[in-house]
Amino acid sequence: MKKTLTNEIKCSFLSLSQNESLARGIISSFLLPLDPDIEELADLRCAVSEAVTNCIVHAYAGTVGTITLSARAYSDRTVKISVADKGCGIDDVAKARQPLYTTLPDEDRCGMGFSIMESFSDRLTVTSRTGKGTKVTMTRKLSSPTT
């Protein structure tokens, strides 16, 4: 059976910290009609929050830029969520993804953002170019709804 796209959204907002909860609200509204498990919903809300926070505190540190959140749902219950910025970019993605690695230890960052995104999704891809921006994409297959 070929998998087909069943829904898609794309929205942009400024890198203001109050938009972290906005992003969680948007992703909840997108996921709820797909009948996710409570834990799956909570996992993906948390993963999106991490990605959006990184755009605010790292990509656009000290400035305000645009964050783009997009999500796609497929017929096989896979969802693909991307968060993209046009900020500073990451020099060494492999290093940045290591647990407890942070470039902002003085601001109470704990370096667990990527680890959380990784464990709350089936697959996490990070593409980044220094000075151009970063895009993280999280893929997760939702379990079949129990009736």
């Binding site: 948390c46 929050s49 991490e50 926070t53 109470d108 704990c110 370096g111 667990m112 953002g113 959380i116």
Partner: peptide, 13 residues
């Protein structure tokens, strides 16, 4: 009601 790594950073700090 909600916590992510920023809350963990708060606790560790």
């Amino acid at each position: 009601e909600f916590m992510d790594s920023s809350g963990l950073g708060l606790i560790l700090g």
